[in-house]
Design a protein around this nucleic acid. Structure first.
Lengths: 363, 363
DNA sequence: CGGTGTCATGACATCGGTGTCATTACCGTT
DNA sequence: AACGGTAATGACACCGATGTCATGACACCG
């Protein structure tokens, strides 16, 4: 690869003058400039990032650690992939700041994180983003004390800046949309109860019921603990069984995520229950591959991954520039409710509690 | 950040000795070694990649260009994401070779590629992987002549090494599996006919029919040209309509991909047709989020993205090491057929052509 | 016409490592 | 005892860029 000296020799000037042409930081005569550009073109010269960064002590690099790329492998159809939208959101912001994003993958093995961080340090990254695969407490130690860091989709107890989804508000809004359609018997098929998201969303669900004067019925909440494992269809089947065994069966079912909703669609229909005529179904995540493709299309709450990534990157850049203090509280990013065909008003029936007269037709 | 000089001063030795401890390339006395390690720990010293690579003229970096990360945004639920498995496969191989992968995203805008390549060149990447979002001819120009390159999921006419899916063999195997269940009226709902994948798979589909003595019926092939757009459900509905209007309707439907199969599930059921009792459905891609979650689970052909990424990385590493010549032909990677509940023998019926007596029960 | 300021350019040191070569101390041989 | 060989270490140059300072050529001013 050609160096600045080769260019200088070919153009008949000193290396420093070539440097001046490259960086436009001092006046250079027109003719000289032209000769230098010509020499650069002919040699296919590209300045060396390494040489520059060694001198300037600035790498222009931002490190991002994720399991997105490989977590797609673990388990069966693990949640994984959507987390990639976080990377996408961050990428877009960082690109604009003329920094380069160095993406590293844990390969699903957390014990690799220290190695990855070390590689980042060798490259003298100026900031680090750590992206978790779902909303949870931080489960690794991140070395590299001097370097600004932002957590995404996770949080710790030591005040590291963190950007997380606002699960509570999301489920509140979504459940509100269900209530507004006239439903009052609303089942909730949750993800694993231990998950941060489940806890927060359940709280949003209850808040919505409370504000509408609907009594919370524990029988209408079932967890699909082993979600993602081989027997999950059976598990979901059993949970739905319980819902419909009730003498006041639900007219709407909230699912822990879109993927769960997809399985529910199939099982409901096998049982002869139509969506949305007999029961409305809503998901969570707005995983568009699913939500837009399912028939009928799925009403769901957006998990604002892209926005979270962008926000995190923005905070990181500010920290790096010393323009801002680290935020003292977790940043919660809210998402929209996406209303689609799977949610309609309940059919006109006489239940013990309510007579719904509304009925909306969906095409 | 501490330098090798700081470490040397603290340990009371010369920088060169510290370098020797780091690289174990010459004998160092035990006591000296211990003192140096102590100093490194205390200072939190991490060697500078830039300084090393400037001297050795080796960056240890491999550049990868993809649209995976952002293409998830474009269109609605664009195909995008699965291509990430290619990145994953490549990552796993490259990691083992102790190189660092520099991932760049086009943000869906091809015109950015030259910029990305330039950034790669500034970092002196030793090899480049270009990953396309679906099987197609290369649609950009890749500069950086001296650098070894491998195309993945795309190909050009200039002999650049390319790794692509073996769509023809894949569809052949899949259709064969359908035929082996006893089906003889097999519909095929393709993706856009202009696509490389559609062309090749159609050829595999016909090859399978031919080898089984089943006559090709053009009425059983419909394209969903506008797949991925707003009106797609309607389009699929119409296509299915045509299939079932036939006086010899299909007993199995091959779909262009899993996503299409997901939409087909919903529409078939709405029409009162059960999967797999009334008609078997198969997809393509083995997008496990879909194929394993759908109820009943979907029989499909694996699109071996991970293997393709791994193979491409392997070839690139060999090219970089000068161990191998560039392969003169495209490398076609085959995938497995994944047999799941959506494919069963056709129901016992008397058709004009065949009486099928087999019947397999699925749970 | 001499002093001063600006333009254009180059010599040289420097960033953080590593390759080359030199130096010293100590070992075993003959 | 003199010699050759190896272990352990350091001095110094160099990789490819850029910051600092110096220099020569003009142009402008009084």
């Amino acid at each position: 690869m050609a160096t600045i000296y080769d260019v200088a020799a070919r153009a008949g000037v000193s290396p420093k003058t070539v440097s001046r042409v490259l960086n436009v930081d001092a006046p250079v005569a027109k003719d000289t400039k032209r000769a230098v550009h010509k020499a650069m073109d002919e040699l296919g010269y590209v300045p060396s990032h390494a040489a520059r960064s060694i001198k300037s002590n600035k790498s222009g690099l931002i490190g991002l650690i994720t399991g997105a790329i490989s977590s797609a492998e673990e388990g069966s159809a693990a949640a994984g992939l959507p987390e990639l939208h976080i990377v996408q959101g961050a990428q877009a912001v960082i690109e604009r700041s003329r920094k380069t994003l160095l993406i590293s993958d844990t390969g699903g093995r957390l014990e690799r994180v220290p190695d990855l961080v070390r590689t980042f340090q060798e490259h003298r990254v100026e900031g680090i983003l750590y992206v978790a695969d779902y909303h949870k407490p931080l489960d690794v130690e991140l070395p590299a004390e001097g370097t600004p860091k932002v957590l995404v989709n996770c949080f710790d107890d030591f005040g590291t800046p963190a950007v997380v989804p606002d699960d509570e508000a999301g489920q509140l809004g979504l459940t509100r949309a269900v209530v507004e359609q006239g439903h009052r018997r609303i089942a909730y098929l949750t993800l694993a109860p231990a998950q941060e998201a489940t806890r927060l969303r359940l709280s949003g669900y209850r808040a919505s019921l409370a504000e509408s004067g609907i009594e919370f019925d524990p029988a209408l909440v079932q967890a699909t603990d082993l979600f993602g494992t081989a027997g999950e269809h059976q598990l979901i089947w059993d949970a739905l069984e319980k819902f419909f065994a009730s003498d006041e069966p639900p007219t709407a079912i909230c699912c822990g995520n879109d993927r769960l909703a997809m399985a529910v669609y199939g099982i409901l229909r096998r049982r002869g229950i139509s969506v949305p005529e007999d029961v409305s179904v809503v998901g969570y995540d707005d995983h568009r591959l699913i939500s837009e493709t399912l028939y009928p299309a799925l009403t769901t709450a957006e998990l604002p991954y892209s926005a979270m990534g962008a926000r995190a990157a923005q905070i990181l850049l500010e920290l790096m520039a010393g323009e801002a203090e680290a935020p003292s509280e977790r940043i919660r990013v809210g998402g929209q409710v996406q209303h689609r065909a799977s949610l309609v008003a309940p059919a006109v029936t006489v239940s013990k509690n309510i007579i719904s007269l509304k009925r909306r037709k969906e095409e």
